[in-house]
Amino acid sequence: MSGTQPWGFTDDRGTEPVSARVPERVVAYVRAGAALLDLGVTPVAVYGSGHDGPVSDPAKAGGLDAAGVPYLGPGRALDEELLRESRPDLIVDVTYDGKSPYALDEAVADRLGVPLVALSVGNELTLPAILDRFGALSASLRAGTAVSTAAPADLTGGVEEAEAVLRGVAGRSGLTVLALSGAGPDQVHLARPQAWPELARLAALGVRLLDPGPGPGANWLTADWGRAAELRPDLILFDNRFHAVPPYETPPGTRLAAWNPETPPSPAAYARFFRELAEALVA
């Protein structure tokens, strides 16, 4: 397929943007853009979410900074003129509810007359299904010459091998793991494993993830650090994004490892995460 042929792609809201040709200038939410870069499609620019600030969060950005992809600022406060100057012919966002793009108001894309694709990263899909969807989108876009790089030789990113290593380590170590996001000295958000596709995947690979127990919140149980300590995890996966804070209170001897709840949804990015976790479990 050449870049001059018609293009269409049904996103995870059931919306099918169409174009007279394959989009060549993609602007994306930073998490989505980092995944596309791993998959052989280089965005012309990226933007952040309401959690982000005026500079890009390296935890989300993957290889975007090294590739020289400009960051336009947080999506909900994005200067539309900056977006217009990027001359996008496609915007790629994510969705958690299957209805609305997460980081950019769709009205912005409408005003610019630019189609918007939103791919699900919520728990209605498994992590392998999420990776497959980003792979399918990138494959459809690699026909566009301006945004395409040479497709990586191995688009699986070594994720299957990394999963095999983690499965073996998890089975031998038996360590308990608690995933959390620090909110300050008096508050922490404790992740409910089945609410997060990557945590559910870890559990399927044999990692002994701790559930924080009953209480409000579908994705997190918000509590104090004492509650995290009471669960007595052997290892804490802590949110390493800019807006989160490091663990304030942990039981003696608890190991720490970084977790990015917005890891770019590419096989390469998750392979790195799985390998790092495997190393932490045997450290």
Rank of each mutant, 00 (worst) to 15 (best):
S173K: 03
A258Q: 11
A257C: 12
Y270S: 02
A77D: 12
G73F: 00
G182M: 11
P185C: 09
E81T: 14
R111G: 02
V92Y: 00
W7P: 03
G253W: 11
A170H: 04
P264R: 03
R172E: 15
G182I: 05
R167F: 06
E106R: 13
A151Y: 07
G50F: 08
G62A: 05
Y29A: 06
A146Y: 05
V69D: 00
A118I: 02
P216E: 15
L104P: 00
L104W: 02
G122E: 06
S148V: 03
G8Y: 06
F134V: 11
G171Y: 06
V92C: 03
T263A: 12
A278H: 04
L237F: 03
G174D: 09
A244R: 04
L131R: 08
Q194V: 10
V22F: 00
E262K: 06
A223K: 12
D38R: 07
A179F: 02
L119E: 05
G157L: 08
G50C: 01
V117R: 03
N240I: 07
G213S: 10
W7M: 02
N260T: 13
P233I: 11
A280R: 04
V30H: 01
S120M: 11
E106T: 02
S100F: 04
A278N: 05
G33Q: 01
L64W: 01
A183L: 15
P251R: 14
L82V: 04
G113Q: 10
L82A: 15
R142V: 10
L90M: 05
D234M: 05
L119Y: 05
R167L: 07
T42A: 14
Y96G: 12
L205I: 06
F274V: 03
W196I: 07
A278S: 12
F273L: 13
L37A: 07
A59L: 02
D38S: 09
E163M: 09
G135R: 10
D52N: 09
Y270M: 06
S140L: 08
A257H: 07
P17Q: 08
S148Q: 10
V69E: 00
P88Q: 06
P216T: 13
H189M: 15
W259A: 03
